[in-house]
Amino acid sequence: MNWEMSKIVRTVTDIMVVPIIVYGIYLIVHGHLTPGGGFQGGAVIASSTALLIIAYGSFRDHKADLSSIESIGLTLFIILALLGLFLGATMFHNYSAGTGGLFGGTVPQGINPGYINTGGTVPLMNIMVGLEVAAALSLILLMMGKASDSVEVEA
């Protein structure tokens, strides 16, 4: 599928990509308040890649960069998890909830409107997983899109 779609589709794609990315990031960083989180937001961001691939046919090959982003996201995720272990508790312990640092606020019990500065490690992990998922799904789409174009190869 290495040809461009019509001008209308391309223009709409250009306009839509930035709001879609922002919406995906919104889903990620509000993951601890509203439905959403790393996976959903990452998938939405990856759908912007899908839009670009489909509208322009060929997309510049960011394979190595995307792979690095994926690795960095996962590495930071597991390091965040292991930090709980090194800080005296166990792996995946939420050590920064309610301590007042980054995302370290406290929430009132029960129903509340939701404050962004809460959650401890949970929003951070959300962001890392979001990075990973967005990069991974984009990579899958890129690879499969490229593979669907090429002709048969002899072994």
Binding site: M1, L27, P35, G36, G37, F39, Q40, A43, V44, A46, S47, A50, I54, L137, I140, L141, M144, G145, A147, S148
Partner: peptide, 24 residues
């Protein structure tokens, strides 16, 4: 949460990769 994930993954991306595979 699950509904968003299913919408993003099941409806959009799965269809996309299926179409790529059918194209190939």
């Amino acid at each position: 949460d699950v509904a968003i994930a299913e919408a993003a993954v099941g409806a959009a991306l799965t269809t996309a990769i299926f179409i790529f595979a059918i194209k190939a």
